[in-house]
Design a protein around this nucleic acid. Sequence first.
DNA 1: GAGTGGTCTAGACCACCCT
DNA 2: GGGTGGTCTAGACCACTCG
Lengths: 236, 236
Amino acid sequence: MLKYNEIALNIEKKIVQQDLKQGTKLPNFNEMIQEYGVSKSTIVKALTILEQRGVIYQVQGSGVFVRRKRKYGYINVIENQGFTTDLDDFTITSQVLTVEKILPPKNVQENLALKTEEQVFHVKRIRFINEQILCLEESYFCESVVPYLNEEIAGGSIFHYLRDALKLNIGFSDKYLKVKKLNAEHAQTLKLQLDDPAMYSEELFYLTSGKPFDYSKTVYHYQHSQFFLQSSNLNN
Amino acid sequence: MLKYNEIALNIEKKIVQQDLKQGTKLPNFNEMIQEYGVSKSTIVKALTILEQRGVIYQVQGSGVFVRRKRKYGYINVIENQGFTTDLDDFTITSQVLTVEKILPPKNVQENLALKTEEQVFHVKRIRFINEQILCLEESYFCESVVPYLNEEIAGGSIFHYLRDALKLNIGFSDKYLKVKKLNAEHAQTLKLQLDDPAMYSEELFYLTSGKPFDYSKTVYHYQHSQFFLQSSNLNN
DNA sequence: GAGTGGTCTAGACCACCCT
DNA sequence: GGGTGGTCTAGACCACTCG
């Protein structure tokens, strides 16, 4: 484990365990340097990570302070699929509708930059949050990256499977959001009415190598989903 | 101007100007060190910033590569209010409905952590994107931070005014998103129908000092708004 | 002015990719 | 094994805040 990651996790854990309020001042650099026995740069790096994650904010000449969101029950949009959902604990479950290996439609082929004959795993599932319908999700996984998938795996967290069993390194993602009226099929699946509002999302996930491997389309149940998003200083 | 910021901007400019495609490899560290005449750490810092912003991705042992979004016409959710909207150029204009100094409602008071007698500027405006109705926005600015505001200023970019005229340093923000049906008032304002879908957003903006100064509620026109969001490796 | 964070350097060494 | 990025250090110096 890298030193700066260990320090970052340690600080975050303290904030949560001691339930420190927004604005609480953390120890200064020299104290942290002492406590962790590392150089100043390593502390700087650890704090930068926490700042980007929205856990703290730093004020030059003044100190490092706790940042905590005020509202609960919101899904963090940034935290990639199921990692680190530890703290704000929702129970996410899935009902798998389809797992099949197919030749993908053209738009999927383009998004995943596939060769014309390359197949994909097509997974369709309903996801539940605390027993309530959260969304309908349709994903396409590139065969060359994800050589195997079945209904059991799709019933749990696919991303944990990719990371732990397949040892894949998920790097970054693009998300596109749009609000629309539900069509008949989606309304039925989500147990809502035709023309009810819905958030439609399109996502593209990449490995750390830059290879896109998962293209997903999701429709969210508007009554059971709300989203949370933090921005930090983009010059750090 | 800080060295690493200058380098980051320079690299981003090159990518845009030369219209480099996703996956294009950038010069290696030694070349950049030569080109900019700085130490390795400064290059690392500049590249980290660009990585967080979704402009590049770095692959250990391999190189630094261009990352570019595939779709256009989406509003970047992360980039705080009007800064750096330079590249994906939308024309944003505003029709001001209200600018008044008032004693705020209770929930605003709580969000901005105000003293009971402190007043706020209440600004209500319709915002247009390329001449089309984008959203209805209702903002509350803390008097102690924003001592003056008028209709003319509210007609332009309030955030530019805060930054340039008032010399405020905007630090970070929390956003909460929810999809709902439009109520009668909002439907009329946005020229939509009752019960049409809409994205409702609540935002809280903080100075770099950690002081919250702007609480805003926004309703987006579902046909004229779509959103874009990039995640990067959160361990950097 | 004392205290606190922010920038930048030079250089050692590590980890990973590719051929 | 050669190339490339990633981590970490020690220390100089800068910039901001606050009493």
